[in-house]
Design a protein around this nucleic acid. Structure first.
Lengths: 200, 200
DNA sequence: GCAGCTAGTAGACACTGTCTACGCACGCTG
DNA sequence: CAGCGTGCGTAGACAGTGTCTACTAGCTGC
């Protein structure tokens, strides 16, 4: 294909594909190098450590999620703020369920550099979620929340928990295996709970 | 100490201490064996695989959490169902923040046998959460929820997300580092959101 | 034409989880 | 008491991992 794409990018490509298809367990440094067609020492020139490569892959995950948010936000431009929150919530949980490996990686602080309290990591990975969160805060404000940032935080936590517990398997155990129905129900419940029950 | 305690139990003891003090990364099979004072092959007699030992450790974590629930339930016996839910929520998130390593292990399906779709695991690990969940369902019903199981699931997801995102570091980033205040606020918000705003 | 640098190779090292062969000490049987 | 089997743990080998260190093609600019 495009063998000319620089190795640094190719490694991230390969890693992202790998984590989406096989999960975080398959993200060995040597495995990524193998699939990129280089020796196991090659990645070291661009990523000083295994964790820094995984961080770059996770960063792409957050970027993908951001794009997704932008798409649903654009698609629902002239609907109510509440419906846009709902759409974003579905996008968040949907992303997690469609790409469980990537979603897991994005929040596996033990695999990422961000855990190391090392502020050298250029834009800290955690902080790359701030724009997404800001969007939620703004929408919460437009929905009339008294403390938009608290409401947005609570809502985010709710969505995150839905995604995580569904992937973990306890929610399907409790609500039935039908994913679309169960998730929609829980996202609706989360939005209604934190933004007020009135769907109008 | 009690060197007479059977090795199987001692391994779980050591593993639980280890994951609480050093985190999941320190839970190597050989490391546990070392700290228990036996050779690296010894655990194999009781746990056929590394994951099965970790599953046993996680099972103890769930048992601890269950005890904690029982304590707060007993302590708040004659308060309103709503306050009991609140107490349980604080217990859940509190456990996660006090023992982040153990909490992480309990939900790391890639480290546990439960992921393997292998139903041989005696009482499946996931299902050991069912009694705790049932307690929440009962309380939700007594609070007047229309669909107690859905409300309980949504509430659990909310609490779980709070714990996870706080540990991950994004919630402190957004709400400030003050743990007690931030967590209490979010737990209150979750209970109020899913059980209705009226504190009575 | 040759120095210098960049990108990638290849081997070593300590470490991991799994597997297998081997002993040691105990209790039961004759 | 002698002998044996069995449960419990040891010790070594094996493939695989992430990191580190030499080393080498191939290109650049002088």
């Amino acid at each position: 294909m495009d063998q000319e794409r620089p190795l640094r990018e190719r490694l991230i490509d390969v890693g992202a594909e790998l984590v989406m298809s096989e999960g975080t367990g398959a993200l060995g440094l040597r495995e990524i190098a193998r699939r990129a067609g280089v020796s196991h020492g090659a990645p070291r020139r661009y990523f000083p450590t295994h964790h820094s490569l995984l961080s770059a892959i996770a960063r792409r995950g957050f970027a993908d999620l951001g794009e997704r948010f932008a798409q649903v936000a654009a698609g629902a431009r002239n609907s109510t703020p509440r419906d846009r929150v709902r759409a974003i919530g579905c996008a968040y949980v949907g992303y997690a369920l469609e790409h469980p490996g990537m979603f897991e990686l994005m929040f596996r602080h033990d695999l990422l550099d961000s855990a190391g309290q090392d502020p050298s990591e250029e834009p800290r990975l955690r902080e790359s979620t701030l724009p997404l969160f800001a969007l939620l805060v703004a929408l919460a404000g437009r929905c009339g929340a008294e403390e938009p940032s608290v409401t947005a935080a609570a809502l985010w936590a709710n969505l995150h928990g839905v995604a995580q517990l569904w992937l973990w398997g306890s929610l399907p155990l409790v609500l039935g295996e039908n994913r679309a129905a169960g998730v929609e129900r829980l996202v609706d419940a989360a939005v209604a709970a934190h933004l007020g029950g009135a769907p109008a």
